[in-house]
Write a protein that binds this DNA or RNA. Structure first.
Lengths: 211, 211
DNA sequence: TTAATTTCGGTAAAACAGTATCGATTGGAT
DNA sequence: ATCCAATCGATACTGTTTTACCGAAATTAA
């Protein structure tokens, strides 16, 4: 398996989703050119991306075996061995994520949720129980869960992060706004709405200028 | 104003958020070195990023004027002239976004929401009314709104996109999974949870390997 | 069976982004 | 008043990511 850059990595789930649609249509082969055209990528980039994670080559004039390609993507993305995670903070956004239907397809299963609001504790959302935050330590220890999804307000963010890291969490998917500091061995992935929106508005401005 | 790369662009809201905190503490100056340390960036990168969007230089031994820096960032990011947007699809995620408290700080105001579910239509969430999707055309025309936030299931995604583009929407913030095709003049920014989660798990694996 | 065409994989070149270096300038300490 | 340390901006360098190119291989069609 070759080295994969961050941008490249983010493209793989996009390929996966597209290819699933083609697979549904009963197609058997697909060429890099077709994929590139549908996604708006360059042909060379698609070829390089796919070469990096597949073991079997494609065949000239036909392209790649669609089924094999999907399997390679799922293997690479780890969609086969489901990742278990806990969710912390059952506010509007946290509840929406508990209800998010596509996580299983992405190899993610939320096994428990935590909040410190008594009104939330005891609820069951999409078959996931909401427990009191005070019980989180025991749960992390006993379940061995490694990933936490953070949906808490910004104020206590770093405090909570420090706590759960000490309890054994090594991967943090952070939906809360704000920067968090962790030791090197911990992985953090931020979902930063402000950054995403900034890209949108900036690109809109650029297009207006270009006219 | 110099050219700004996409990665660079995504860092500016992060700077902005950090600097607001420092401003709250009553600080007057801040050096690139301090910013770099707090965000885990390199000192040079911070300096280069800030140089690209500011007009006034920093002063040696003190750093940059914090207030001026924040103003430059807000100016660059367009936080001053508030962007108006509509939201389409008031499901769990859509409702969570309607309740999201930080949009005003990001220069975003959602002025109306649309859904085709009669149970949703007529609700008012966080002072935003949910209207029937059939009335969207009139609203876009009369309000002149340019940005749409999409939170609809994947099935009708492209159909809706084609419709709203025809009605005058030019910027789409897409929270729905799946690739959408638009004319060149339209800007799309995807919030792709699958890609984000893939980066998290991949980085976690890399760290385990590196041990 | 042969020719034409498509697509492949690998390599080379170009573009881009990030890092390091360096002289200049300023503020504060002595 | 002078010196020292910190920070700046600019530029040069390095590395990474993307794009372009090219010969080879395989399928389809004549």
């Amino acid at each position: 398996m070759k080295y994969v850059s961050k941008n490249q990595l983010q493209r793989y789930p996009v390929y996966h989703k597209l290819l699933l649609n083609h697979l549904k249509n009963g197609e058997e082969f697909i060429s890099s050119r077709v994929i590139a055209a549908e996604l708006g990528y360059s042909e060379e980039q698609v070829r390089k991306d796919l070469q990096a994670i597949t073991t079997y080559p494609g065949t000239p004039k036909r392209g790649r075996n669609l089924n094999e390609l999907v399997l390679s993507l799922e293997e690479f993305l780890g969609y086969n061995d489901m990742s278990q995670a806990i969710l912390i903070g059952v506010g509007h956004l946290g509840a929406a994520l508990l209800n998010y239907k596509l996580f299983p397809q992405m190899g993610l299963k939320i096994i428990e949720a935590f909040d410190n609001d008594p009104k939330k504790v005891g609820l069951t959302i999409n078959n996931i129980e909401v427990k009191d935050y005070s019980s989180i330590k025991e749960f992390i220890k006993s379940s061995g869960v490694k990933i936490a999804i953070l949906c808490i307000p910004g104020e206590n963010l770093q405090v909570i992060v420090d706590e759960i890291v000490k309890m054994g969490i090594v991967g943090i998917w952070n939906f809360a706004p704000g920067v968090i500091n962790v030791p090197d061995r911990i992985t953090v992935q931020n979902v930063d709405l402000a950054s995403s929106f900034a890209v949108l508005t900036h690109n809109m401005k650029q297009k207006i200028k270009a006219k």
